[in-house]
């Protein structure tokens, strides 16, 4: 039964990705004017234009063009960068790990601190902690990411220089890139100092990126927990003589997690867009900064590739969220 559910969801995922590829393909074709001229710029020679048109297959019917494009996609070919002719797929792969490292760190901070703060707030509503935490959460969601990043940078890297200003690790300390994840690579290389250095570099960008999701998760956790704590089964758990920590964590939090997981999924998407700003501010060599650089350089092929990758990541996250639902709520598991 669960395998059938998973199979159907994977099939669904395939269709979503197909749709995304179609949209991305049509985007460049639907911009008014000649894509080849768009790509090469207004001073391109007639021969160059003709060569590119032939290369892109622009004389052929649209469905055929899409078929060819899809064929290349399936082979992992996202086209060539217009800036330097490098394969876009390789460029993205090289930067993806940096973004993943940053996003995972931010998500861990946001999830653990957010749920902890929300639970404590709900258990002691209107206490000093609750009031302070919810006020901070309000400030957190309202704060523009770029401003927060700059302020943290100014405070902790300039005024009180306890943390590095930018980048992933000091010059010359880069470990051999095995996974692309700096923390993992330094550990694999057995370089403790480099690991600590990478960790220090990660703190400010990760905290910046985590702030908005952290605030949202804390607020959702609080309201979800407050509702669950009113339920009859929580009273039953207390009537059984269970310790209050068991009542809160095992009986209440598990039920409260359902809406929290939804928000977690939505926030992962938010993290990707937040990464664009955060990576730019902290010179973090990830996908977000690559998108910005490519946009500035009008590198449409690169932008297209990034959109495709972002969309695929989001679709996979959605699938994971739905699977998490099924794991948490037996009612979904059975009826699915």
């Amino acid at each position: 039964m669960p395998l059938g559910y998973l199979g159907r969801r994977l099939l669904h995922l395939g269709f979503v990705l197909l749709g995304v590829s179609l949209v991305v393909f049509l985007m460049l074709r639907m911009i008014p004017g000649d894509p080849a001229r768009l790509l090469l710029g207004e001073f391109a020679s007639a021969e160059d234009l003709a060569r590119l048109r032939a290369q892109m297959g622009l004389e052929r019917p649209l469905p055929v063009q899409y078929g060819l494009y899809l064929g290349r996609l399936l082979q992992g070919d996202l086209g060539q960068s217009l800036r330097n002719g490098a394969p876009v797929a390789a460029e993205i792969a090289q930067r993806l790990a940096a973004t993943v490292e940053l996003a995972v760190a931010a998500m861990l901070i946001a999830t653990f601190l957010g749920i902890a703060a929300g639970v404590v707030s709900a258990v002691r509503p209107y206490s000093l902690f609750d009031t302070a935490a919810m006020l901070l959460a309000l400030v957190g969601v309202s704060m523009p990411v770029f401003w927060l990043g700059l302020m943290l940078m100014y405070l902790f890297a300039v005024r009180v220089p306890v943390l590095p200003l930018m980048g992933r690790i000091g010059m010359g300390n880069e470990p051999e890139a095995l996974t692309g994840l700096m923390l993992v690579d330094t550990l694999l290389a057995g370089e403790g100092e480099a690991f600590l250095e990478a960790l220090q570099h990660l703190v400010l960008p990760a905290v910046t990126l985590a702030t908005v999701p952290l605030a949202i998760i804390a607020r959702i956790t609080r309201s979800s927990m407050l509702e669950v704590l009113q339920q009859d089964y929580v009273r039953t758990a207390r009537a059984k003589g269970l310790d209050e920590s068991v009542v809160i964590l095992r009986h209440a939090l598990r039920n409260a997690l359902l809406p929290i997981v939804t928000v977690l999924g939505l926030n992962l998407g938010l993290l990707l867009s937040g990464a664009v700003l955060t990576e730019t501010i902290f010179s973090w060599p990830g996908l977000g900064r690559y998108v910005v650089d490519s946009l500035m350089a009008r590198d449409y092929a690169a932008v297209q590739g990034c959109i495709l990758v972002f969309a695929a990541i989001l679709a996979v996250i959605n699938l994971v969220v739905d699977l998490a639902y099924a794991a948490l709520d037996p009612r979904i598991r059975i009826h699915a």
Binding site: A239, G241, D243, N255
Partner: peptide, 25 residues
């Protein structure tokens, strides 16, 4: 008191539909 609840004195409630935890067997 927790050693008495559910042990020496137990209680059953009016609403069997909502008194059991929906996510635990």
């Amino acid at each position: 008191m927790r050693r008495i609840r559910g042990n020496r004195i137990s209680m059953i409630f009016q609403e069997p539909m909502t008194s059991l935890n929906p996510v635990l067997p």
